[in-house]
Design a protein around this nucleic acid. Structure first.
Lengths: 184, 184
DNA sequence: CTCCTAAAGCAATTATGTTTGCGTTACTCG
DNA sequence: CGAGTAACGCAAACATAATTGCTTTAGGAG
């Protein structure tokens, strides 16, 4: 699942309009029908665009969806920096939970899960890098390792997003962090 | 994702043979090409069966794969009962890890993930029920709740299966249980 | 063993997704 | 602006998936 944004030598005007309406169409359809039941002709029709344009720009559905999904949860967004590891992780986890409480983002994650596994996805790699960054800030004496963050903070969130989305609420992030820091 | 085994008024002989060769074909193909790139005609050809038979019995690919996946990790298998909650959970987690270290089972899980979300899948429900059973055995004074088992034992395993399968080894289950019981 | 019919096989048809060649539009650079 | 060309739209060709009516095979009750 490699996700390099499909670049365009004429990014403005009509191309931008096509990109935008396709993006909206994909998000709507993935949310309405689930990643499995979305096809390129379907997206093209909803977007008011010719299917050929989609095929020529992205090649196939997976590439297109990965490309579109990249626009969300920007990898270059600022990582919380609040003064303590615990509050950084809380803020960060809340962001992730809020992101995936959006059904479109959840559906895109599920779609990505299906094709994950052989190679580390951008999504996973980014989460790991961000976790490492926060932990390192507070030195090697940190009570928490990046792997623990993945296992006990990211994993429960992602598991719930995929399999138990209705259990995600605004308290999820905080209580997971509490458990992570209990007795340390 | 509803998974009711497609029942057959003539379960023996030829039907059984078809079911079996289709099952093998699905497992091979899902493992070889990933859930996304498997089609019914493909499965039928590999199985040496007419595609029509597959369409008529299962209707579509998702139903078929869910049905086939149900044959694995038998829900009526015995739950470990070793005398302590910690060792029960360890044995149970080891089973799950071993199950999903098989690439076919991992691929089927990823395929299921794609269509999960709207309704609780059998797989998830069973894990939760099993966790509850083990915890209850040792009374309400238990230091661990079923939800904690899901968040901190099941979730990390499933997360790794889907996104980081190469990080699963024979120590994974034990160390996750150790963390779960640390300081309790 | 025999009959009944569920399930499988086959072939023709329909539907849908994908590719391709070519003409048209309109972004961008000078 | 105006020329050059990237990207789009259209329509036809192609490929493959799904459906359907009919025939054949064989499981299982009596």
């Amino acid at each position: 699942m490699e996700t390099q944004t499909v670049q365009n030598k004429r990014p403005g005007g009509r191309s931008a309009a096509v990109l935008n309406s396709v993006k909206v169409a994909v998000e709507e359809l993935v949310q309405e029908r689930g990643r499995e039941r979305v096809t390129i002709p379907m997206v093209a029709e909803r977007a008011g665009v010719n299917p050929t344009s989609v095929y020529r720009r992205w090649g196939d559905l997976q590439t297109m969806i990965n490309d579109i999904a990249t626009y969300r949860l920007d990898p270059s967004r600022p990582i919380p920096e609040t003064g303590s590891l615990k509050s950084d992780l809380t803020a960060w986890a809340r962001e992730i939970v809020e992101h995936y409480r959006n059904p479109t983002n959840a559906a895109l994650l599920r779609g990505g899960a299906a094709s994950a596994g052989e190679t580390e996805s951008d999504c996973t790699r980014n989460r790991r890098a961000e976790a490492g960054m926060m932990v390192q800030r507070y030195g090697t004496a940190s009570p928490i390792t990046p792997d623990e963050v993945l296992d006990h903070l990211v994993a429960p969130i992602i598991y719930r997003v995929i399999f138990l989305p209705w259990t995600l609420d605004e308290t999820t992030a905080d209580s997971l962090v509490d458990v992570l820091f209990a007795n340390r």
